[in-house]
Design a protein around this nucleic acid. Structure first.
Lengths: 252, 252
DNA sequence: GAGTGGTCTAGACCACAGG
DNA sequence: CTGTGGTCTAGACCACTCG
């Protein structure tokens, strides 16, 4: 399959939906995936892609832009746009906001939960501040032991404003599924990760010796409006979990 | 100061350099910083900003785009572009690739290093794979104890291909300063973070009791070309350091 | 319906890489 | 010098919010 033919709009542009730049981006991704576009070889020039696809160059650039962000393509002014080698690419799920359920699925493990607490409570001072609650607001709280592949993995306590999760007992498996159903899915989160020695109680729940190293993760999630949707504190087994993050050099 | 006047190009557009969309972005950032543009209030419509600044709407959108990425501005179709509340914003340095030196400066601490190893070595199998070395290539390696505010903070072992760091003894303080000088500054990195119990030797170097929890961080850094520039393994004191990361919901 | 952001176009000029 | 990506424009239409 040659590149010009692969980009011929008649064969794909009606096959997907959404903005043209998204469709083109996906087409290019498919091309890389299927080997039509190979690592270390240049894409056709932007102007040529534009003419091949019958799109404007601005639209072509917008399609490529996201691929550059993800590290799949490197653009060099005056030279060309190149597909990077696979090992240099950032896995797309690295900086992705995932639920524990999804995270474990990605690692090929089934996950379950054992409920420790699930209901509506009077908020702690921490919760009032982080969730921006009013003086008389209550808080939804769900605390559970996360189990994956028959091994306890984490203790997780999530707190949410009552209007975002009015019925905490409705959460059966994935909190994020419930939030998505009500249109309250966070789009961004900040995590603070530190190391702790697990105390006797936590160690017992996680099935490790007292004083074992664990990861303490505090996550604050935001809706697209900028409002805080969720505040979660988790303790992960140090011997069974690692956290992967992507960093970028600031462009300021 | 009113918004229209603040955006009047005569007063600022020549005062900075670079592309127009970058200058406008910085102007808007200044406006938010100085209070001319207030949280929860809408920016002028894109078309109005364009006419006020005598720029095209495309350029205005590009300026705003980055601010939306950082969570400083929220755009709502059909409604407007709003400045978010400060507490909902992502600190710009969160997902930023920083050196230990910078990182400590940001936290208001002076940093120093105690050299444990610095020179050219035969690579370990790990290093050969991660750094994509040839069979006969050597590796530059620098190992040091990082100290901040008179407290040992981390043990750090960095490995780099010889052509990227030909002279490891030239590194006096910041590795990244040396890399920048030679045009080999990484633009992206992947970090894997896990928790470990520090063994006797490491605990002694870090000045904590044996078996204390520590953060183990493996970082692989990439040049803009996609090539691996640096592979670093660090052990941080769990009681003195935390790692902050930003997550996003994938838009696929 | 009026006003907003979201997408798209055709064309121009600039900055840089490489023969 | 030619060809590439980087920036910028003026104008159009669509999709959505809100009164």
């Amino acid at each position: 399959m040659n590149v010009a033919k692969f980009l011929d709009p008649n064969s794909w542009i009606d096959g997907s939906i959404g903005p043209l730049y998204v469709r083109l981006r996906k087409r290019i991704e498919d091309g890389i995936e299927s080997g039509v576009l190979e690592p270390n070889t240049p894409l056709p020039p932007e102007r040529e892609i534009a003419s091949l696809t019958a799109l404007s160059r601005v639209t072509v650039r917008k399609a490529i832009e996201e691929l550059v962000d993800r590290g799949v393509i490197v653009q060099i002014q005056g030279s060309g746009s190149f597909v990077t080698e696979k090992k240099a690419r950032v896995e797309q799920s690295l900086s992705r906001l995932t639920s524990f359920t999804e995270d474990m699925e990605r690692r090929g493990m089934a996950s379950e939960s054992k409920w420790l607490e699930r209901g509506i409570f009077i908020p702690s001072p921490d919760e009032v501040v982080v969730l921006a609650l009013g003086a008389s607001d209550s808080v939804s709280r769900i605390t559970r032991l996360r189990i994956a592949g028959d091994r306890p993995m984490a203790l997780e306590r999530a707190s949410l404003p009552l209007d975002i999760l009015p019925n905490p007992t409705a959460v059966e498996k994935s909190l994020y599924e419930v939030l998505q159903a009500s249109g309250n899915l966070p789009v961004r989160a900040i995590q603070k990760i530190s190391a702790i020695n697990l105390d006797e109680k936590d160690a017992e729940l996680l099935g490790v010796p007292e004083n074992s190293a664990g990861l303490h993760i505090e996550r604050t999630s935001y809706l697209s409006s900028g409002r805080v949707a969720e505040f979660t504190r988790s303790k992960y087994r140090g011997d069974a979990y690692d956290f992967v993050a992507e960093l970028r050099l600031a462009t300021n």
